[in-house]
């Protein structure tokens, strides 16, 4: 959201990827096309995500909703409490409206349906971070 001109040095956007599927995690990591975006961690469930968020101080988190142990909704709730400035993009195929709206209520900033194209992912990240 910063309107700073490009010439101003900016700390790279630190991305944390949360999804229980290894493939989806790598897919997100590979598909993003931003020069100044740095993947600082990947987590397979809510607990890992919170732990990594504490350690890596991410700016942006992509979040699956259906995960074992701690699901996305609970993770979003705790993540926002932990890092109020963090931006959260839910990436989920489980798109029933009530759950999706709840995720947003808990503090997610956007919602992206699975499966997604590279373009959709990049547009969503750009919308949130640039």
């Amino acid at each position: 959201m910063s309107n700073a001109p490009d010439t101003v040095a900016r700390r790279p956007v630190r991305l944390l990827i949360v999804d229980d599927s290894n493939i989806v995690r790598r897919r997100i990591e590979r598909s993003q096309q931003f020069d100044d975006l740095q993947v600082v961690g990947t987590a397979a469930n809510g607990f890992e995500a919170l732990e990594l968020a504490r350690r890596t101080d991410p700016d942006l988190v992509t979040m699956d909703l259906t995960m074992p142990q701690m699901d996305g909704i609970e993770c979003i709730t705790q993540l926002v409490r932990l890092k109020p400035a963090v931006r959260i993009l839910v990436i989920s195929a489980l798109a029933d409206k009530a759950t999706a709206v709840e995720a947003m209520e808990r503090g997610a900033n956007g919602f992206l349906d699975k499966p997604f194209t590279d373009r959709q992912l990049n547009e969503a990240i750009a919308e949130l971070m640039y």
Binding site: L89, K97, M104
Partner: peptide, 8 residues
């Protein structure tokens, strides 16, 4: 973000 919540 308005653009990222149309689908829900």
């Amino acid at each position: 973000h308005e653009n990222l919540m149309k689908s829900i």
